[in-house]
Design a protein around this nucleic acid. Structure first.
Lengths: 205, 205
DNA sequence: AATTGTTGTTGTCTTTCAGTAAGCATATGA
DNA sequence: TCATATGCTTACTGAAAGACAACAACAATT
């Protein structure tokens, strides 16, 4: 549908946008492609708009938008703090190992929610269908009974189910091989699981 | 850290950006807040930049960026076509039920990959820890043995493991209660699973 | 043979827009 | 008390940037 030249232009727009967070002006496009005239860029943009791959807002500077960006939900950036059951001494230690960017609608959390992510290590939650290597997204909020939580228990963080029995909260593994973590000295809930992201093709049983 | 007025300004910037896909000019900010001067907007922006919540590119029009947007990976929009094992007559029938926007690094697919998503219905893949209600992300590519695939088999689409035995490909459920889908009349692979998104807090066992 | 789309050119015009100077009142912390 | 941050005002400048007119060569259709 797009010609080769138009494809090149679109690619430049995308690259410029991801690098700079804004759109190039027509003269910047002109310069990049070595046009002698600014009008060349303009007419190319017109062609791209006609084919629907960009939208222009007339009269405004750098006012090009990708249509898909417009009807996209708001994106939030969930920091990945590290691995669970493998450290994470305290909440403040943010060993920021990258970010997970996803739209709020798919995550299903309010816009104001404080969220973070942890990579799961171990199979203590396998019966809740949480595998080793999965990335769990947690929200900072009060847990309700039955929630899966990341908890700091006696110095170490684990992912377990939060259960209340006779008014006594404790942690339950979802694997018969693991014992419940009954009455504890200290129990600090660090986050409540709200979503899970599994990645990778080599999903061998 | 931010004053109330600065918070209002930031909120306006975000709202304007999500609505229009670009940043407001200083004069548009002025107009929105009813300032008599454009300089008021400028100095507010300067304050916001000093506090690190926005970045300005000097000399360029509408050149405000949110820092988190800059070090963000590229976002791709994965269309959700519908439910699996519940229809989807053909590949072209895109009953677009929203979109899942996520950064490519977290998805783990190349930028050029053709992807789509399906909501899982049923528990035939429960032993591969794919639950009913999960959202599987699939890529349009050739399956390799052991991959989990969405396949059109005799008119209906299902999510199964792709197995080759004696040069004969067939589909295997990951649940003892379900039979293998052995030699078939037609076997069209619609996508290979590359990721999975589980959502919702009520993750009761 | 005629029309439309692509890919350009030279020029010109006008608006948008960022940036600065200079000033003023009110808070807030050192 | 003095400096600094906040939250504005009026007035001006000049570059940045969009838009248009007119033209031209070369496809690809119709």
């Amino acid at each position: 549908m797009l010609t080769e030249r138009q494809q090149q232009l679109l690619e430049f727009l995308k690259e410029y946008h991801t690098n700079n967070g804004l759109m190039p002006s027509t003269r910047e496009i002109q310069e990049f492609f070595g046009f002698a005239s600014q009008t060349a860029a303009v007419s190319h943009l017109r062609a791209l708009e006609k084919k629907g791959v960009i939208q222009k807002v007339p009269g405004k500077a750098r006012a090009l938008v990708f249509p898909e960006q417009l009807d996209r939900e708001e994106i939030i950036d969930v920091p990945i703090y590290g691995q669970i059951a493998a450290g994470m001494a305290s909440e403040t230690e943010q060993s920021n190992e990258g970010c997970l960017s996803i739209d709020i609608a798919s995550l299903g959390v309010p816009r104001s929610a404080k969220t973070f992510a942890l990579k799961v290590r171990g199979d203590s939650m396998i019966d809740a269908h949480i595998m080793s290597g999965d990335c769990v997204i947690l929200e900072l909020k009060e847990p309700r009974r039955g929630d899966i939580v990341a908890a700091l228990i006696d110095g170490e963080t684990t992912l377990k189910r939060y259960v209340i029995n006779d008014g006594m909260p404790y942690l339950q593994a979802e694997n018969e091989l693991y014992p419940d973590l009954v009455p504890v000295r200290e129990l600090v809930i660090q986050g409540v699981m709200v979503a899970l992201l599994r990645r990778g093709e080599g999903m061998v049983a």
